[in-house]
Simulated scan of single mutants.
Amino acid sequence: MDPDTAAPEPDSERHTLEALGLSGVPHDDPLSYPGVWPRRSGLLDGGHLWPLTRLVHPGRTPVLAVGSNASPGQLGRKMARAGLSAPVPMVKVRVTGLAVGVSAHVSRMGYISASPLSAPGTVRELFVAWLDGEQLAVVDASEGVPLPAGNFRRAWLPAAQVPVELEDGRTLPGVYAYVNRRGVLHDGGGTPRPHPGQRELLTELLAGLPRLRVLFGATPEEFVARARADAALCEHGTRLFAEEGLVTRSGLEAYVPAGRGTDAPEGH
């Protein structure tokens, strides 16, 4: 990584994730999902998030984060567990044509994750993580991409359909995003449900689905504890969403590759 991409300061304590309020890890606290996101672009470097002064990204892959991958605490934990220490540029972007929906599966982490969905005309501020080859492999694995039965597929979203604009006004040629292969949840009337945050989401789902309460309990805390303790129960909950008729398409299926779950346009 070019050292000019960050602006380290002598007072490094100011830029620790803890000092910035970004050290939380949804993996450890599922009800905090999707975690706390930065207010601006930065360079994630171990336990620090430095101001990003210049983006240098040859050889790196742009991956759009719609859930906890935009949380420096969560992303940093993934890298640390894999023994990786290279910095990760996290760039705030303006995305047109996407909304953040609810994945149609129950995660073993104890939460129901976010997933992108097509939403023409919608404009959102999200983050793009620029990952080197090793970092990309780690994040792919965390999303279940290499596995045939994994929940997510990494799809290339071209700028013609999903413009992603940097803070300086440039538009990227495209980005990758993790699209749930099972679809997303809708609100009971066919409209995709937005992801409001984990506690609110679980409260709403448990209140409206008696069968879900039988499986996971009456409170978000009970849901988390039971989901983290039982992989088969998570799969049962995932099937329940489909059986209740609450699953719809994300509208991004055309971009989801077959095979191992990744797709790379020529030159990327």
Rank of each mutant, 00 (worst) to 15 (best):
D4Q: 14
T5R: 13
P8D: 12
P10L: 14
D11I: 10
T16R: 13
A19S: 13
G21Q: 13
G21C: 11
S23R: 14
S23C: 11
P26D: 06
D28M: 13
D29L: 15
Y33K: 02
G35H: 06
V36M: 12
R39F: 07
L44F: 09
L44N: 04
D45V: 06
G47R: 09
L49P: 00
W50T: 00
P51Y: 11
T53D: 11
V63I: 12
A65H: 03
A65L: 06
V66E: 01
G67S: 13
G67K: 01
G73E: 06
Q74E: 14
R77K: 14
K78M: 11
M79E: 05
A80N: 06
S85T: 15
S85L: 10
A86R: 14
V88Y: 04
K92Q: 13
R94F: 02
T96H: 11
L98P: 00
A99L: 14
A104K: 01
V106P: 02
S107L: 05
R108F: 09
R108H: 14
M109H: 15
L117T: 01
S118F: 13
V123H: 03
V128R: 02
V128C: 04
L131A: 04
A137V: 08
A137C: 08
V138E: 06
A141C: 08
A141L: 11
S142A: 15
G144I: 05
G144S: 04
P146H: 06
F152M: 02
R153V: 14
R154Y: 04
R154Q: 10
A155D: 02
W156M: 00
A159E: 12
V164P: 00
V164N: 00
E167G: 01
D168E: 09
G169W: 02
T171R: 14
T171C: 10
L172H: 02
V175I: 14
R181F: 05
G183R: 01
H195D: 03
P196A: 08
P196E: 07
Q198W: 09
L205R: 11
A207E: 15
A207I: 07
L209M: 15
P210I: 11
P210E: 10
T219G: 07
T219Y: 10
V224H: 04
A225H: 12
A227W: 08
C234E: 01
E235S: 12
T238R: 04
T238S: 14
L240V: 08
E244C: 13
L246G: 00
R249E: 15
S250D: 05
G261M: 05
G261H: 01
T262G: 02
P265S: 04
E266D: 11
G267L: 03
H268K: 07
H268P: 00
